[in-house]
């Protein structure tokens, strides 16, 4: 799962000399939170984030005269004055898994994608990863989730898939959640049918436990995060 298949390719960019207001308006107009900054030859030199924009704006606690002065100062600002230099980048040859782990590690919301010579090829945002995850879950097609709790041993998933197949039901996705209960796994099957009553009973008669939907969770991991770089 390489990044170049999921990234956005036609990226709106600005140059170092682009004015502050122009950059801000571009972001607002397109609903972007990240604007890569490139040289004329496409070499990435930085990124402007919505955070850079916000921190350059005048404080709300100024009086009218001070605000006027501030606005004048800001109107002279260029992208190069506010951009984040040396942003965290990824390469088209990196994978989606790399990007997920890197987001967890750096807490960055979008990565410019650059090739070996440092030229911008695209941008990969959390939004792109969300789209990929929705696709993997298969939830844009009509269907029904089941959550089946199984012993953590070889061959369980096969039995489940066989039982579903015998019912002539197509599977939209299968997820296996780890770190559930000791020695157990939770298998989420997204079945492309409205009619799960029978297969549910069948799985139960085979000795599988179906988990109460109100207890479903993909994430039983402790919520620790790597510390962000100072």
């Amino acid at each position: 799962m390489f990044i170049d298949r999921s990234m956005t390719r036609n990226v709106v960019t600005v140059g170092r000399e682009t004015g502050f207001f122009e950059a801000r308006d571009l972001m607002e107009e397109h609903g972007f939170r990240h604007l890569p900054v490139v040289e004329e030859d496409g070499t990435l030199v930085g990124i402007v984030t919505d955070r850079d924009i916000r921190s350059a704006m005048p404080s709300a606690f100024l009086d009218v005269e001070e605000i006027r002065q501030e606005r004048e100062r800001i109107s002279r600002l260029k992208v190069k004055d506010i951009m984040t230099r040396n942003p965290v980048t990824v390469s088209p040859a990196n994978t989606i898994e790399d990007a997920l782990l890197l987001i967890q590690k750096t807490r960055v919301g979008a990565f410019p994608v650059v090739d070996k010579s440092g030229k911008l090829k695209g941008i990969l945002s959390i939004r792109d990863l969300v789209r990929a995850f929705i696709n993997v879950l298969g939830i844009e097609e009509p269907g029904t989730f089941l959550c089946i709790v199984v012993e953590h041993k070889v061959g369980q998933l096969k039995q489940i898939v066989d039982a579903i197949t015998e019912e002539r039901i197509s599977i939209g996705s299968v997820l296996v959640a780890r770190h559930w209960e000791e020695g157990k796994r939770a298998i989420f099957t997204y079945l492309l049918t409205s009619n799960v009553t029978h297969v549910r009973k069948k799985l139960e008669s085979m000795g599988f436990a179906l988990l109460d939907p109100m207890k479903w969770s993909l994430d039983q991991l402790p919520k620790t995060r790597d510390k962000a770089p100072e």
Binding site: I139, E141, P142, G143, T144, F145, T193, S194, V196, P213
Partner: peptide
């Protein structure tokens, strides 16, 4: 919809 057909 997360628990029921058709998911919308």
């Amino acid at each position: 919809p997360s628990f029921s057909f058709p998911g919308t």
